[in-house]
Design a protein around this nucleic acid. Structure first.
Lengths: 223, 223
DNA sequence: GCATCATAAACATCCGACCATTAGACTTGC
DNA sequence: GCAAGTCTAATGGTCGGATGTTTATGATGC
């Protein structure tokens, strides 16, 4: 194994074993490189790799720290990866979403707060036929993130958010607007909000399944 | 943004835009660094970061290539990340598994092949009270991977495999053996195989839910 | 045709220098 | 005493080049 990979493994192990905890500061690059027995250049490659997957947080002029390792950071790292995979088999990704998101909605229905309902309704305002694709994507992102957030499981939210990154959504919404399917999508969103508000987990789950399947169906014929 | 991060973004964009496709070879480090306007050292940090998330494949003495970007590679990258998160909220991770794996089993029940059934049974052989924890973990890994593989959705399998990495499993099995719960776990595995063999999707789904919930329950009281 | 070897290309590693930024100590002025 | 500004040491960011190691490839000889 290359020295850089060894360094990555060593740092990873230090975190898993608890020698390094969330928020801890690593020794300066020069010192750590000597300790691990490699050059600063090679160590920096290792640190950069761990930085991109949100394990380390490098602050210039200050030092390098272990991130909070919160689930949300998993989402960022996963999104980066999924963005690169999306063209390969977007339908497979959608199939996973179709499993997770209805389940998330069912959980959300049992514990969503009035404030979250209000926030959901807010995503529906000021949307009409002239709304730009970018704006539609933004609202759609917030809508679905609010639902997954209401399910109160950060990992569930992370995986879902990564699987439906804004890059993926953008391409889909572009298609939806061309197909004049925006109205239908918004109507489904409205129905979902109402089900959540009534605490009807079963209906919310089914509505989400229908909602996602609809987009999936459009995708299937568009490809 | 630092030059290294710019390089990461540029390479990523080249892949997303299609200028670089799976299997393509990148220009030599020296040439690419000049093209992107940064030093070779900095470029190498970018390449290393993309290598660890399985986007680039660096072959010493040969060159650097874009990986196949197959879903399985997503799993490797995700596993690396999840390993670092596991202590934070393993119960949340289990909750996601409890959603995904029963759904995967239901799909698997409709399309599993006799060969896959045979392979599943094979994971049950030679297991008894003296079997080491490491061996139990291995068999358990194969058992669940076979089910997710039978569902025939690489992304579903990738996410599931990452969420139940061997590191996570190892700790759980250590607990299970202490609790003398190995027999029960194996009995549940047997029941799942039979349901899959009969093509009973509904039962397979429920059995998986029960199976995972059982472990979840043990975990909840152990923590 | 096949095995062996020589060569060049490409990545791996290291070193040392210098730049840019930051946190924190310090000074200043009130 | 306190607030604002300043200075400095620590730390990461970037670079260029030198050298080692591995691999692919073509030449060579049989």
């Amino acid at each position: 194994m290359a020295v850089t990979d060894e360094a990555i493994t060593k740092i990873k192990d230090m975190i898993i074993s608890g020698k390094l905890s969330a928020g801890d500061r690593l020794p300066p690059e020069k010192e750590l490189s000597e300790k691990l027995g490699l050059s600063r250049s090679s160590l920096r490659e290792a640190v950069k790799a761990l930085e991109i997957i949100r394990v380390l947080d490098v602050r210039r002029g200050d030092g390098t720290y272990v991130t909070s390792l919160e689930p949300q950071l998993l989402s960022e790292a996963m999104t980066f990866i999924v963005d690169l995979h999306q063209d390969k088999s977007i339908l497979d990704i959608f199939a996973v979403r179709r499993i997770l998101e209805p389940a998330a909605a069912a959980i959300a229905a049992t514990r969503i707060t009035p404030e979250q309902i209000t926030a959901l309704r807010a995503t529906m305002e000021n949307i009409n036929d002239e709304t730009s694709v970018e704006s539609l994507v933004d609202h759609d992102l917030v809508f679905h993130e609010l639902i997954t957030a209401a399910a109160d499981n950060s990992y569930l939210a992370s995986v879902l958010n990564a699987l439906s990154s804004s890059t993926v959504r953008a391409r889909i919404w572009r298609g939806l607007t061309q197909e004049k399917a925006v109205d239908r999508t918004l109507a489904e969103h409205t129905a979902i909000i109402e089900a959540l508000e009534r605490g009807d987990a079963d209906l919310a789950k089914s509505l989400l399944t229908v909602h996602i399947s609809g987009v999936e169906h459009w995708l299937r014929q568009a490809l």
